[in-house]
């Protein structure tokens, strides 16, 4: 009787806890039937609820692409909102299978936290926003300007470095919260607002008159944002990395979610290999032969995801810039699939 009671209690407790063995992540994912994806609490264009209260964004699309590759079903994803403090713990503790959460790829993170960066989904960098009426056209004209900055961030250090390197004077107006910084800039308490250029664009879109403000062309820091997986599981890492490459490769070859079915009949050997018509590149990854076809069919290629979430047609309105393909003047580059 007592044994039964213990067993019952244990079952009840285990019902709310999930135990997975130390097996390969891909096997675990296949067993549970979905990819657990760590996202932000809400950054427009990257991971945010849309008007139907469904997660959307360029980083969400990456998780959907992985689910499409594994399950042929881009909806087989569950999302966990993570704060920036808990994101790496959640990843290493196995609470999420992939972290796709505006995470900057740095050396110390890559080498010291037991995690591996998959690639750079989005090349971001710190920029400056000024009022158009001020007639400033370059960051080098900013000498003596009052700059609104969020305290304790790398933003503050980067700005100090940049101004020192160009021997310019500046005054900082420091706040602890991003919203306060924006408010202060809007109220005219400073001439310049600086943060990552994607965030600048998003904040600008919220202003009453976005056209009164311009983002200066200079980018003063490198912020490569990319998905992250646990270190040590090569199979899962490869799947994540080649999901990212497949998105780029599809754009390069002109395969989109709209024309992917026609492209199955293409004569181009590169397209044949990508879509699994010729050769089998999926099985070594642990997925089916048509893995890339499934990704493109349900999520689209990199350009589609970019344009849908952060591109010029969206309220965020970011040009491709560095994120264009290498042949279009950007630095997004995927090794060939062969």
């Amino acid at each position: 009787m007592q044994k039964q009671l213990v067993a019952l209690t244990a079952t009840a407790i285990l019902g709310l806890t999930a135990v997975s063995a130390q097996a390969a992540i891909l096997d675990d994912v296949k067993a549970k039937g979905y990819v657990q994806c760590g996202v932000t609490g809400g950054v427009p264009g990257f991971s945010a609820p849309d008007s139907n209260n469904v997660w959307t964004g360029i980083e969400v699309d990456f998780c959907r692409a992985m689910a499409a590759a594994v399950f042929n079903d881009a909806e087989a994803v569950r999302y966990t909102s993570l704060t920036s403090q808990e994101r790496f713990t959640a990843l290493s503790a196995g609470e999420v299978d992939v972290l796709s959460r505006t995470t900057t790829w740095t050396m110390s993170r890559d080498t010291q936290l037991g995690i591996s960066f998959v690639g750079t989904m989005f090349y971001d960098g710190q920029g400056f926003m000024v009022r158009k009426a001020d007639g400033i056209e370059s960051a080098l004209d900013l000498s003596g300007a009052a700059i609104c900055i969020e305290s304790g961030t790398t933003t503050e250090l980067n700005a100090a470095d940049y101004f020192a390197a160009n021997s310019m004077e500046f005054n900082t107006v420091v706040f602890v919260d991003q919203d306060e910084v924006v408010k202060a800039y809007e109220d005219g308490r400073c001439d310049v607002y600086t943060t990552d250029s994607s965030a600048l664009a998003a904040e600008r879109s919220k202003f009453a008159n976005p056209d009164d403000h311009i983002i200066l062309p200079e980018i003063i820091s490198k912020e490569p944002l990319g998905p992250v997986v646990r270190a040590g599981d090569t199979q899962w890492f490869n799947l994540a990395r080649w999901t990212y490459f497949a998105l780029l490769e599809a754009e390069e070859l002109g395969v989109t979610s709209a024309n992917v079915d026609e492209m199955l009949g293409s004569d181009n050997p590169a397209i044949k290999r990508l879509l699994g018509v010729e050769g089998d590149f999926g099985t070594p990854l642990g997925v089916t032969k048509d893995w890339a076809y499934q990704i493109i069919k349900s999520v689209g290629n990199y350009a589609e995801s970019y344009d849908r979430n952060v591109g010029p047609a969206t309220p965020i309105g970011l040009e491709r810039g560095l994120n264009a393909l290498w042949k279009d003047g950007g630095i997004q580059y995927a090794p060939p699939i062969r």
């Binding site: 709310l16 806890t17 999930a18 135990v19 997975s20």
Partner: peptide
């Protein structure tokens, strides 16, 4: 233990 999680 690795891989064991409790619902948030």
């Amino acid at each position: 233990p690795q891989g064991m999680t409790v619902d948030k």
